[in-house]
């Protein structure tokens, strides 16, 4: 099986409001997939469904080979999730956080112990060992959160604005980490408000008003919309939508 995510005619309604309208896309294994859209375009709703947190109203959704209707518990076991707003417990130390998340996903004590050593070494956390997460610089915190989301070696990692507010150098180091995982066959599903980061993805979708309005590799999309960067595509799409509404 080479598809990490398969979505066919996915629709989610809240009462009469259609938050997500007939989405169709597939994500390959090992792909870095960018999920873009304005606030309120339906991104969050769609991600919740893909993470097994919410059930679709209609359509077919398979994540890591599991069905979103019947196997949401299995989906949860096979994905990792990291968001800017919440990921690590500020008042726990680095090791305690890793132990906690490792425990949730049923890792053995020995495995957790070796993960702690691995992460401390990989992220150069020696000087911070034993300190609470709240005392870490934001960039390091975000890198650690990414590693923790990866602690149970999931097939897919969902990253919700992982680099928000991070300094430009750390932001790029973060993307190096993403590439490294993708090279190991991990599928990365990422949202961001930095348009240059959109270009780092293998393929991106842009959602407008619950629908996918663009889906392709960044370079092909730029040709298709005849623009210099992704940001302009974004503006074009939203203006088009505004004029069609008025």
């Amino acid at each position: 099986m080479n598809k990490a995510v398969v979505v066919r005619d996915l629709t989610k309604k809240f009462g009469t409001f259609t938050a997500v309208n007939k989405l169709n896309f597939e994500v390959d294994k090992g792909e870095v997939f960018g999920f873009l859209g304005a606030n309120g375009a339906g991104k969050t709703t769609a991600i919740k469904i893909l993470c097994g947190l919410s059930k679709p109203s209609s359509g077919q959704v398979t994540v890591a080979g599991f069905d979103a209707y019947k196997q949401s518990e299995l989906i949860k076991k096979n994905i990792g999730y990291m968001s800017q707003r919440f990921s690590l417990y500020d008042d726990l130390t680095i090791a305690e956080n890793i132990r906690f998340y490792g425990g949730i996903y049923g890792l053995k004590r020995v495995e957790i112990q070796s993960k702690i050593k691995e992460y401390v070494k990989k992220l150069n956390l020696e000087e911070f060992e034993g300190r609470k997460v709240i005392d870490l610089p934001l960039g390091i915190k975000q890198k650690l959160a990414f590693s923790v989301a990866n602690v149970h070696n999931p097939a897919i990692i969902f990253l919700d604005e992982p680099t928000s507010g991070v300094d430009p150098i750390t932001r790029r180091q973060f993307w190096d980490m993403i590439y490294l995982e993708a090279a190991h066959g991990k599928t990365i599903f990422v949202t961001t408000h930095y348009m240059d980061e959109a270009e780092y993805c293998d393929r991106i979708t842009i959602m407008v008003d619950g629908k996918i309005e663009a889906l392709d590799s960044p370079s092909k999309l730029k040709k298709e919309f005849n623009t210099q960067n992704i940001s302009e595509i974004f503006l074009k799409l939203s203006r088009k939508q505004n004029t069609s509404q008025n």
Partner: peptide
Amino acid sequence: DEPTTGVDVVSRA
């Protein structure tokens, strides 16, 4: 103070 953090490109513009 950071009025545009977490806001999409269009709203930011």
